[in-house]
Nucleic acid binder design. Structure first.
Lengths: 198, 198
DNA sequence: ACGTATACGAGACGACCCGTCTCGTCCGAG
DNA sequence: CTCGGACGAGACGGGTCGTCTCGTATACGT
């Protein structure tokens, strides 16, 4: 489901759609989000401006669809080896590498920034990119609660935020490096707060 | 120190400077950051555009100075009553109320969003608005470490991030409400991770 | 298989804002 | 008092916006 489909989607050109996504992702990496323009995307994609305006309300919506299209598999479950700390560290290390990769950085950062400023966009950004990730951590933490490994009274949502928010905040505002040592420390600290037997 | 003072600052019109700040803060609340323009600020302030371009490099820089001017007292130390949990909860509750107030919201959110997208701006934003806040929590946590109240091996910086990042992330991306109950929970969880006697 | 509807590429259009510049005025430092 | 420089005002070319209007090409309905 694109953001605002009004014309007849059956007649839509798949070729143009892909060209627009490719152009948007390439351009946001080359010139940055503020200088990303609809005209520029259209020209690079070999497409009329109207074709973009027909299907998307803004450059942010184009980028969100383009990025979502290219980032499948964000909704997979965490491994559950029984060792909660190891599972969390493993996935957080992978996330760390992803956020350090340039191809991921530019569009994701642009969308996060645009979402922070625009209430409507932030809803779509959160629902389509952030929440699926949150849910995966929440599920794994609930499983650990049922296994009696962590405090059953702790709110998995808040624990997830304590794991991911320091991480994303560092990255978004560039207040520190994202390293495996850092994410390991986060996991250890959060789990020390909710270990059972206190 | 403004962002880029090149002409003779002694001859500068204080009257215009204030009018520009007032106009920028009012407009960002009325039309939002993306539709905030230098021309608009100049017109509202009754000022020539050149007067703005003479003293600031961008609308973000104007807004950062305007906001900083209006937000004195962000560098004060936390109270130290000896009860670490109570001190942290007290200040975090106050911060919570501040972030929920509309006059604070619009410019701060605009600056955070612009900083996320622009590397140079994020440096200034972090240094002038975020780090002073971080330092205050770090100091209070170090004092608690010296008093033997919390684990001396824990990194105060990371603990500060675990307190503040979930908070600001919720606010920035609108992923949840900011309530006193929420901030209290954060304090309790973080302190459980580093309480002494384990 | 054909006819028709409609999305398509291309680009013109007025509106807005950008950042620079040029005026003539006014004010403050020396 | 003098005078240099910041001031308010606004003209200017350039770029992007979002809308529109072409003629073309293509996929659907019968």
């Amino acid at each position: 489901m694109p953001t605002t489909p009004s014309p007849n989607a059956a007649r839509r050109s798949e070729r143009s759609r892909r060209a627009i996504f490719d152009a948007a992702l390439a351009l946001v990496g080359e010139v940055g989000y503020p200088r990303l323009t609809i005209e520029g995307i259209a020209a690079r994609a070999g497409v009329g401006k109207q074709t973009i305006y027909r299907w998307w309300p803004s450059k942010a919506a184009v980028l969100l669809d383009a990025f979502t299209e290219g980032a499948e598999g964000y909704g997979e479950a965490l491994p559950d080896t029984g060792d909660l700390a190891a599972d969390l560290k493993y996935v957080l290390r992978a996330t760390c590498d992803e956020f350090n990769s340039p191809a991921f950085q530019a569009p994701y950062r642009a969308l996060a920034a645009a979402g922070a400023a625009d209430e409507e966009l932030s809803g779509a950004f959160v629902a389509r990119l952030m929440e699926p990730g949150f849910a995966v951590y929440g599920d794994r933490l609930r499983a650990a609660q049922e296994a009696g490994q962590i405090d059953p009274d702790a709110d998995p949502r808040i624990l997830t935020e304590m794991l991911l928010s320091p991480f994303s905040q560092r990255w978004l505002m560039r207040t520190g490096e994202l390293t495996h040592a850092y994410t390991d420390t986060l996991v250890d600290l959060v789990l020390r707060a909710v270990r059972t037997g206190d």
